Amino acid sequence: MAMQQCRERSATATVACGRAARELGLRSREFELAVQLGHVRTVSAPGGRPRVTREEIERHRSGEGFPESLRNRLWAVGTAEAAQLMGVSPARFARLAKAGCFAPVRFYVNRYRAVVWHYLAADLVEFADANPELLTGRTPPGLRLELEGRDDQRARSWRARRLDQLTGRTAEPWEQAAAVAAVLSPDQLADAVPDPYERAYVSALRPDLAGIRSDSAAAREVIERVTLAVAVDEIGRHRERLALALDAARAVRPAPRPEGYAAAAPAREPGGGAREDSRPDLAAGRVLEPKPKSEREREPEREAGGRDARRGRAEAPAGLRAWLRRLRLRG
């Protein structure tokens, strides 16, 4: 009995990600990629930091071919190495990559503020085996025109891949909605999620798609161009997906909001549509109006000249983000 309890405790024990990476023989970026791709599963710990169970580490360590088998699945290559791996020229590889024939797995911004893409070697080998006619000789004219006529699909295919990773890692409906919302600009998100408390909650849960930190405003602008959808059709698909995710989340539980607040109906134009400038704007400090109080509740406020009511309304915008921050930490 004691031995069984010891094994159970060992299986559920967790270690920090840095230690897990060392025990799995992975460098930091390899470990991050392993988590993104779902090869190494993490669990949430108090404080929000992910950890890795001993059981997960032992699952890999006892696997056939460890550690080479795990590292091979995480082998990511740049354009030059990818072209060499596929046996094609860098120009041909770039044309296939821009056409969206395979999705990048990660990127970084170099010192010239250019995006450098990396691809999984396993994806490239799979594509090469399935499409040998695209690797040698002249590309058929029709296909060549189709490939060259497409806009650069690398950022778009990376976003799609990243969203699939993030939504597949959580079953929590609001977190899934937040993952989809992460590729929408603030303006698009405001249109897609008009309720400011839902929008604030989704924004608080939004994951960091790229995981890249930079002190350079120019580099951050480049990263934003990669992470945010820009094409009308892509934005439309993500908004449809977000609407479905929000419906599923609302069916489970509503977005949290302070007690005493209810959604205020937006002002209407004479033609029946909502005025654009009447939408509640969390960033500008406008929040939902409080629910009407009963006569008994309003009597002390009238006697005090309404000072308490005015003070309560003035404090709500300033405290809203702090409230959301505390809510997220508790979750």
Rank of each mutant, 00 (worst) to 15 (best):
P300A: 09
P50C: 06
V202I: 15
V287M: 10
R61N: 10
L70H: 07
P104N: 03
R257Y: 06
L96G: 11
R59K: 12
P194D: 05
V116N: 01
W117P: 00
E198H: 13
V193Q: 00
E224L: 07
P290F: 08
K98S: 13
P90Y: 08
E276T: 14
L70G: 00
A2D: 07
Y201K: 03
Q153F: 04
R9M: 11
R19A: 10
R307D: 14
A178D: 00
R106S: 09
H60F: 15
G305H: 05
G142I: 03
A255L: 02
T53R: 13
S157A: 14
A177H: 01
D152T: 04
V252T: 11
E224H: 12
R73F: 01
D281H: 12
P300N: 10
R71T: 06
D129M: 09
A264G: 11
A171Y: 03
A21T: 05
A130Y: 04
D151I: 05
R169V: 09
A99N: 06
L246R: 15
L228M: 13
P280F: 06
R144I: 01
E146C: 05
N110Y: 07
H39C: 10
A255E: 01
P280D: 02
G285F: 08
R237C: 04
D151P: 13
R325M: 01
D164F: 03
R310E: 08
M3I: 14
P173K: 03
A255S: 12
A200H: 03
D247Y: 05
D129R: 13
A190W: 01
T42A: 09
H39F: 14
S62L: 14
R325E: 00
V230I: 05
N131W: 06
R213A: 13
L242I: 09
P317G: 02
E301W: 12
G18V: 12
A248I: 12
A263W: 04
R159V: 08
A243W: 06
Y201G: 00
G331P: 03
A97G: 09
L166D: 11
P317E: 03
G78P: 01
G142L: 07
V88Y: 05
A99G: 12
G211A: 08
A80E: 12
P141Q: 10
L184Y: 06
P258T: 05
A322F: 08
A210E: 02
D195E: 11
E315T: 12
I235Y: 07
R54L: 12
Y119N: 05
R311W: 10
A262H: 05
R59G: 08
A13Y: 02
R27Q: 15
L209W: 01
R311T: 15
L33Q: 14
E148R: 14
E259W: 01
V40E: 00
P132H: 09
P140G: 11
R213D: 08
A192S: 02
V180H: 10
E198T: 13
S10G: 12
Y108S: 11
P254F: 07
L288T: 15
M86Q: 06
H39R: 14
V35H: 02
P46K: 09
L209A: 07
A219Q: 13
G78N: 07
M3A: 15
D191M: 10
P90K: 10
A262K: 01
G236A: 15
A21H: 01
W323R: 07
A284Y: 09
A263P: 09
D208L: 00
A179Y: 01
A218Y: 13
D208P: 03
Y112L: 13
E221I: 10
P207E: 00
L120N: 04
